[in-house]
Design a protein around this nucleic acid. Sequence first.
DNA 1: CTGAGGAACTGGACGGTACAGTACTGGCAT
DNA 2: ATGCCAGTACTGTACCGTCCAGTTCCTCAG
Lengths: 215, 215
Amino acid sequence: MTDIDGEAGRTARKRGQIAEAAMAVFLRNGYVGASMDEVAALAGASKQTVYKHFTDKKQLFTHIVLATTAEVDALVKVVAATLDEGDDPAKDLRRLARAFLDALLRPEVLRLRRLVIAEADRFPELGRAWYEGGFERVLTTLTTCFERLAARGRLSLDDAGLAADHLVGLLLWIPVNRAMFYGSEAGDVADAERDRLADAAVAAFLRAYGPADGP
Amino acid sequence: MTDIDGEAGRTARKRGQIAEAAMAVFLRNGYVGASMDEVAALAGASKQTVYKHFTDKKQLFTHIVLATTAEVDALVKVVAATLDEGDDPAKDLRRLARAFLDALLRPEVLRLRRLVIAEADRFPELGRAWYEGGFERVLTTLTTCFERLAARGRLSLDDAGLAADHLVGLLLWIPVNRAMFYGSEAGDVADAERDRLADAAVAAFLRAYGPADGP
DNA sequence: CTGAGGAACTGGACGGTACAGTACTGGCAT
DNA sequence: ATGCCAGTACTGTACCGTCCAGTTCCTCAG
């Protein structure tokens, strides 16, 4: 999961090591199952230092999770770049769908997702922040892209937001749910299977929202 | 929810009380957060009796969860009854979609779902069993119904299983995810909103898989 | 370049709490 | 009397958060 904070002086480096270790421990054991001793040990730090940087176990946890929402920016950019440039919506959508699948089925993303869902009652504001900072951000980007495509006559729709919801629903419901309920290793869907899922979802989407061939 | 085991003699009744109490406690606090003392207290039983009926905390948990898969039979029957009788697929599908939403957005179903997802790493076989005993059972029923509808010319599709996946994806991805990430009270979607979601999903589905108006 | 001053860090121990699972005692019904 | 069960005390373990004594690393004047 790369480094969570930037590179800097000693204290910032330690802080980053602690955050990285905490991410690993939380992902592996869940919030309650994670022990601060283990975090400290994995970070190569002492508990004193851990508690100097993060006041609480709760505060450490929320910091870890919220830091990851920055990563969705990459996905947002992929969406915009893929759909605004190309001239063949079917092909572009297939590429986009494949990118979505690859992004969401990464094992650490799945584990993080499971973690946030599991603690949605203990940390309600955290679940909300993750949903809005990740999920909805991608959806609104997709929505504005669809509006532009509709204006160019490449799609026929009244409600671009609804169409965006439907595309991701067609694409992700099955594989993401399988991955949620099966163990964390269930994300390793074969490459060909991902292509099949992406193509099928886009085909159905285009039948529902493709350009009107009119009467 | 209701009672988890059948009615029977005193020992079986106690067993049922313990199971019911355990369900409540696990749903409220999660697996690790649930304490056997609390289960015993809520069941009006002593820990001795609890451990007489269920060897372990783990064993109690898996028993609780697996007992709920029986409930999906009701939903399966609704699917078959709704789709096989009616003569107006659009109307039937809307009713079916609405029934799906109502079933899956019940707060206790959402909590159970969150619980199983959270513990999918600790209890891999449990997640698999729940997915196959609930999720896939409904999907296969829907698939055979779609095959019959296609044979009668009411739908046009090559792959009924794919169409079933797509219908539930269109319908459930957004509301279920919202409910997963927001607190447990997020299931209370307004009635009108549920109708809107159901109608929109069915409309899109029928554009993708409706009877061919063909040449 | 050098070396002192000070901030940050380590390692381990500790109090307090919570909980799984066991054992024991007394009561209630048959 | 006999068998089942409530109530409760107990054991052993795990862990959060704090504290202290000693060490390492960075900084900056000389």
